[in-house]
Nucleic acid binder design. Structure first.
Lengths: 369, 369
DNA sequence: CATGTAATGGAAACCGTTTTCGTAATCACT
DNA sequence: AGTGATTACGAAAACGGTTTCCATTACATG
């Protein structure tokens, strides 16, 4: 019996008579042959049928972040529909350069999605080395690499302007980690600008924009960094801010998780939100919605889907590659009534309708064999 | 230049002089060679360095279920520490038999973890065909296949006895889907026993046990099934139960998600929990903790870690044998059936004995461990 | 009966590594 | 310089399929 025929029996049932096929399968069963080896098949066909996903190093925290989960969900949906597997690349922050490169190089995938890792992450560098189709999300744009994201800076700018419009200027900011090293505490403007994470950098810059626009001094705004992206961090950072200045009128958090932590801390201190103090978040996770948080709602699931579609070369149907300027104007779906101005409690959600998709046309990494 | 030397340059830097190695790497860079092909390497080494994960078909719902996420997190942690990738197998409920088998067969993995799929799931059948090391979780035990789970039946039995001890006997039950087909509504005992999901079957049986033990009629207890595992389902099912019998004293939900939905529905109706009516859940997710739900806290993350360790042949360190009396969690050690020896050296069945606590924070009940 | 055509099965090349083993070169030591 | 040990590198055989191409057979047709 030739290999060809066996191969055909499994993959092209129409290429041989059904009784021969049945005989082959029967024999296979008897011999304990489990079917064609997927690895050998991948080698020959030059196709793994798998998409690699590079999540932030802090895997444990990624799974605790509803936004990351939604992204994963969106991506997984697209992969499932395309019959592709989704491989979580084992990203170990404590590994040395060699191990990291090895981990990425060992991944038998047809392409990579990179989600919110630091700019200088060695995993990312290793991925780019692989010269496979790649999509980055919540990252700085890389020449020739597809990109999915939102207008973080503009969105946070809107939120900042909204707050300032309400009369807030004595605010404190809570931010997740800005770099790969643990640092919990105040960060000055220099450090803010040097943040290794695109998202954090952009959002802080957006807030600074809003302050600059009305000639308020951004340098005077305390920004507290926390390495762990948890509610507890949000709480402790809020505490730190209030110790420093108990007269703050708003706590601006760079994510909903942190904002939820801020809420609990404020309640613990007997402060009413939003009567006594305002809290804002970012992302628009369900829990935030339920808590009645002022936040920026971004289409996280859609970002995952867009990334997947982009990688699998499907048309990015729902997200035509938009002009940058369109998305630069996030929609305030609750315009602030006049009577609410001057520090009156108010809640609004800034909704970003669709992710921003930038398709790399120069195709450096794309389809280059 | 021979292939051997190039291979060594990448994988065994100590096997050749550093200047030769540098020369090779330099040449590779110049020629655009991206390093050894992981697929070919896997073929040769007979090792993919990847663990396959088969999640329930309803992928979208899996990612919305905090318990499933925690399991995933635990598994991912173990994989990361072992330098293994984690492959989400594209499980499509709507695919036909052939596509499903193909999806599983295309996965280049060293082993599978199967998490809470229906007993008759064709994906599961395909996985078992592959004759690879496999661990099932929240599934019925399969001869010769590693198993991770908790004593669902005993746990729910304890919870039931606890409720009965408090005087509850007029209760309603909310359950997630019992089979692969959508069915929303009341289910009789026959259907309960025929449930395709191990977990649901065991938990319902445990509750029935508790009723039987004190000679209460389980047939009289209304059980409402919901296909979608969401808070909305919990709410609507609760509504359905109350329409049927407004004098219920307790709503027993088979998961925390459903229970949280029940809570909102009851609040909406102006009923106080736990003063007017008791609600119980299952899983012990953080949200439930926060809501002060009576629930069974199971070590979900630990289950994920145990599954990973079992598959990767690490000792299952953190899960020692506990006394049967605690909550009836035996740790069984099965000798390896001879025919399976070639697949994997040491197989055992582990039932998690890590802390499983019946919490009673909602005031009506108080009990522990 | 010869011949063209379609259906079916087989031979061999190829995918890109790892690994074993052999050979040549280098080196320390007597 | 001879000898044995050690090191550096290369040749060739797997690994387990897919795919292309060709040979054979069966059958209908002129």
């Amino acid at each position: 019996m030739s290999r060809t025929t066996v191969s055909n029996a499994y993959n092209r049932p129409d290429q041989l008579s059904s009784q021969l096929r049945e005989r082959i399968l029967e024999t296979a069963r008897r011999l304990g042959y489990p079917g064609p080896d997927p690895v050998a098949r991948s080698l020959r066909t030059r196709q793994a049928g798998v998409v690699g996903l590079l999540l932030t190093e802090a895997l444990c925290h990624a799974f605790r972040d509803p936004a990351a989960i939604s992204f994963l969900e969106g991506l997984a949906m697209v992969c499932r529909d395309a019959g592709r597997g989704l491989l979580l690349v084992p990203a170990n922050p404590d590994a040395d350069e060699r191990q990291i490169t090895a981990a990425v190089n060992r991944a038998g995938v047809d392409g990579f999605v990179v989600y919110s890792v630091p700019d200088d992450d060695p995993h990312l560098a290793a991925v780019l080395q692989r010269a496979l189709p790649t999509v980055v999300c919540d990252q700085p744009q890389v020449e020739g690499i597809d990109h999915v994201g939102i207008a973080d800076r503009a969105a946070m700018g809107s939120l900042g302007a909204h707050l300032i419009g309400l009369g807030h200027h004595r605010i404190g900011v809570v931010c997740m980690r800005l770099g790969r090293d643990r640092h919990d505490g105040l960060v000055d403007v220099r450090s803010q600008r040097a943040a290794r994470f695109h998202v954090q950098r952009a959002r802080l810059a957006g807030l600074a924009d809003a302050f600059g626009k009305v000639l308020l001094d951004w340098n005077a705004v305390p920004v507290v960094e926390r390495f762990d992206h948890t509610m507890a961090s949000g709480a402790s950072a809020t505490s730190e801010l209030l110790e420093r200045d108990s007269a703050l009128t708003a706590i601006v958090c760079m994510s909903d998780i942190l904002a939820l932590g801020a809420l609990t801390e404020l309640r613990r201190r007997g402060l009413r939100v939003p009567e006594d103090i305002t809290v804002t978040g970012f992302d628009g996770v369900p829990e935030a919605e339920q808590a009645g948080l002022t936040t920026v709602s971004q289409p996280v699931l859609e970002k995952g889907r867009a990334a997947g579609r982009l990688l699998l070369d499907h048309p990015v149907l729902d997200h035509p590659v938009l002009d940058h300027s369109v998305l630069n104007h996030p929609v305030l779906n609750h315009p602030v009534p006049d009577r609410l101005k001057r520090l009156k409690p108010s809640r609004c959600t800034v909704t970003l309708a669709a992710p921003m998709v930038v398709r790399a046309t120069s195709g450096v990494a794309k389809d280059s064999s």
